[in-house]
Computed example of a mutant assay.
Amino acid sequence: MFRRLYRLIPVVLALGLIACGPPRKSVFPPSVSIQEMTVRPDGQWQLTVRIQNNSYAGMNFRSIDGELRVAELVPVRLHATFDLDIPAFAGDITQVNLLPTPEMSQALAAAAAKGSGGSVPYSVAGRANAKPEQDKDARDFEFHGNDWLSPVPGIPHTWR
């Protein structure tokens, strides 16, 4: 009886060690916001989009696909592909060019006429495609965010 028990103990210990593999790190959706926006001479907007990794694991971000809504007007598509390795709880930026609607441009011009006291609300929503460091495949993460764009004093056609 004791011989069988002595043979079983190493098997149970080995199974216990196998179950103690590396812990999985928690993964959460990123935050996406506009860090800076420049109105180019051709009317396009060049956005500096900030992606904040809110996870306990580093992630390789590959694309965002969503919409930008300015001042509750009709939204425009916000889409970009890139390759950003963002460590846990860190952020990085990417450039996105888009063509705004005439109403969006008018809302921005009205806020700019107010000087540094003018601002325009915006919201972004969509999906960010990323591969967490512990996963084999990339997956989509939903993002939603809103904030304000205000003209930068002394730098024409630039908003933050």
Rank of each mutant, 00 (worst) to 15 (best):
E133N: 09
A57G: 07
V12E: 03
N129H: 12
N97Q: 13
L98W: 03
D135Q: 10
A112K: 10
S63A: 13
P30M: 01
N60F: 03
I64C: 05
A57W: 00
A110E: 13
R40D: 11
R62H: 06
S63T: 04
Q52S: 11
R160S: 07
A130G: 03
I34S: 05
R3Q: 14
F82R: 00
L98H: 03
F141D: 02
I93V: 12
Q134V: 06
Q95M: 14
A138G: 10
R62N: 08
A80L: 04
S119T: 03
L15N: 13
D42I: 02
D135L: 09
A71L: 06
R160G: 02
V32Q: 05
A109T: 11
R40N: 12
P121L: 09
K114H: 01
N129S: 14
S33D: 06
L149F: 07
Q52M: 09
E72H: 09
L15F: 15
M1S: 15
Y6N: 12
D147Y: 07
L73Y: 10
S116Q: 13
S150L: 08
K25F: 12
W148P: 02
P87N: 12
D83A: 12
G117M: 12
A14N: 03
V12P: 02
H79K: 14
L108V: 13
L108A: 14
L149Q: 02
Q106P: 00
A71W: 06
S123T: 10
S105M: 13
L73W: 09
T81M: 08
G16T: 10
A130P: 01
P41E: 06
D147M: 07
K25L: 15
G126A: 10
A90R: 15
P153Q: 14
M37T: 03
G91S: 15
L84G: 02
G21C: 02
F2K: 14
Q44F: 06
A111S: 11
I86D: 06
D42G: 00
S123P: 01
Q35H: 08
R139Y: 04
S116E: 15
I86C: 07
A80K: 08
M59G: 01
R3H: 11
I51E: 09
P121R: 06
A107F: 05
V70W: 01
L84E: 11
S26R: 07
D85F: 09
T48G: 02
F2W: 12
F82K: 01
L13R: 04
A109Y: 06
P41K: 04
R139M: 12
H157M: 01
S150F: 13
A112S: 11
W159D: 07
P75L: 03
T158Y: 01
G43L: 05
G115A: 10
F141H: 08
M1T: 08
L8K: 07
Q134T: 08
Y56F: 12
I86G: 05
T48D: 02
P132I: 08
G117D: 15
L99R: 13
P156L: 14
T38A: 04
W159A: 09
